[in-house]
Design a protein around this nucleic acid. Sequence first.
DNA 1: TTGTACGCGTTATCAA
DNA 2: TTGATAACGCGTACAA
Lengths: 343, 343
Amino acid sequence: MEVKKEVTIYDLAKTLNYSPSTISRALNNHKSISKKTIKLVKETAEKVGYRPNNLAAGLRNNKSKTIGILVPHLNRPFVSTLISGIEESARKAGYNVLISQSYDEAEIEIANARTLYDSRVSGLIVSLAMQTELYDHFKQFTDQGIPIVFVDRVPKTYNSYKVIIDNYTAGYKATKHLIQGGCKRIAHFAGSQHRNVYEDRKKGYVDALKEHNLPIDESLIIPFKTLSFEEGEKATKKLLKMEQPPDAIFSANDTAAVSAILCAKKMGFSVPEDLAIIGFNDDPISKIVEPALSTISHPALKMGKISAKRILEHEQKEQDDLLTEVSVLNTEVIARASTRPIN
Amino acid sequence: MEVKKEVTIYDLAKTLNYSPSTISRALNNHKSISKKTIKLVKETAEKVGYRPNNLAAGLRNNKSKTIGILVPHLNRPFVSTLISGIEESARKAGYNVLISQSYDEAEIEIANARTLYDSRVSGLIVSLAMQTELYDHFKQFTDQGIPIVFVDRVPKTYNSYKVIIDNYTAGYKATKHLIQGGCKRIAHFAGSQHRNVYEDRKKGYVDALKEHNLPIDESLIIPFKTLSFEEGEKATKKLLKMEQPPDAIFSANDTAAVSAILCAKKMGFSVPEDLAIIGFNDDPISKIVEPALSTISHPALKMGKISAKRILEHEQKEQDDLLTEVSVLNTEVIARASTRPIN
DNA sequence: TTGTACGCGTTATCAA
DNA sequence: TTGATAACGCGTACAA
């Protein structure tokens, strides 16, 4: 298998009797080059199949026109849609996208941050692993002026770009929606309290109860490890076997909420009459389950696009512009059939 | 914001009174370097925060230790799981993963192939856009000896690695499963016949009917553009309003199959008694819908891992080893409640 | 076992 | 408007 020799700007220079610098400038639309030359160079490049070498350009410029992504799991509806949004915006701007997943483990997150750094990404978009509590592995980026955008699952303290929803308000709204449907004993499926998203959703839940003069019953607040389907089933069974079972559940994600619907039905409870349920994320399954799951919208695509935009814009900025900028997106209750109509 | 100077092998060389080449070799575990020196170099590198520059190494070696991915849509269950598999295998081998999506448009696919090439990926993993019929944009890779793995949606003619399932047999099995449940008038939701996957599934369907002496009724074979939920609803309505409606549907994907279940129920048909339905892919929604959707397994994670493996192994091979190697994975009927029990 | 010297393809600086 | 030259960081052939 004979490998064809690649065409470089030197070859183009020889062919056209120009210097390599002129070729380079022409290909980059440098203003000092005449339109005619630019046209000629580009046409010839096309004709002979010239393709730029991003590695060389990246080395020379010390940046790769690449955005690195670091998320817990690639194959979750929210995450894959987030990435789709990032890819779309990045691609339009001529940027590439490198992906990596931490499987929710801090150690893997650290290792992946390293390799992304080694590829000299122009920026990093991160959604934190469940248990990450130290942020030293992001310092190398900050030290080099490489922008980091934390998205959805963000650190409390780290100074950086952030793209989030208002989880507190979302949790509050979700709970209030249940209260307005007449629910009085509302349970909560709570995610890891290390992560802002779950902590804030819970706070919103608690405050909504308080504000409506409903007691906070700790036995109705179930701590989850991963908010999986199986965990959801177990928790639902436990709740519904209580002497005084709850009349509603606010789950911090849709997966556990859907499992609660199925489990409750199997146990002979009717949803939403005996047990109203609201989830979080608006995953595809929430539309399919019966009764359809009420939930909180989570604008994944938009969050992805904004995250990418932050990085692309950063390149235009002055060195000492501050890079702490928090974008908070709106969410809303999507009322479906798993909660009761509002009085 | 002061940007710290990056540490290079030259800095390490100066610090340790070695030549840069020794440092380079030590970092790469070159056999000519003593264990002691290697240890010293690596420890020092760690201490002073040295990080290799993949761009420089890639330029030098003319390969980037990066796998490029080109798929129609990133946020589909099958695709995102496929990518998760690729990422896992690639990461383990020290490879990075670049992603891009074509939105099922040939033009975007072509443009993305170009940019991935410009990044000098070590290999390319492709699932074709719905309408791609020319494959010239892959020639540049082949010409340079860069391996291409086509996965799931593959070209018929292009000489390359392929990782697929046996769509013909899968379509046959799905149809047979319906027949064994006593169905006699089986409709088919057919995808674009440009793509092997849908063409073969349909062939399997047709042959299963023939083999069981059931007539092929063209009015029961509905051509779909994208196999979307909306298309599925429309098709189901049309079928169920026929004078002699079908008693079963084999849908080429789960999305349309689920919409068929919901639509049929809404129209007063009971599933599977009046209408049995089987889908394809085993998407998460198939477990949630009621009745749960019978479907065909689609080993996304495994296909991803194998695809990555093909590329990683290719690097070890001799130049003129043939690179046409087709991996065909097994699939099976997952019988759930939307089809009738086998007699 | 280690060092010297060069080149990978590109772009920025300086000079013409 | 264009050209010559150096440099980005690394790996390797050749020499010692």
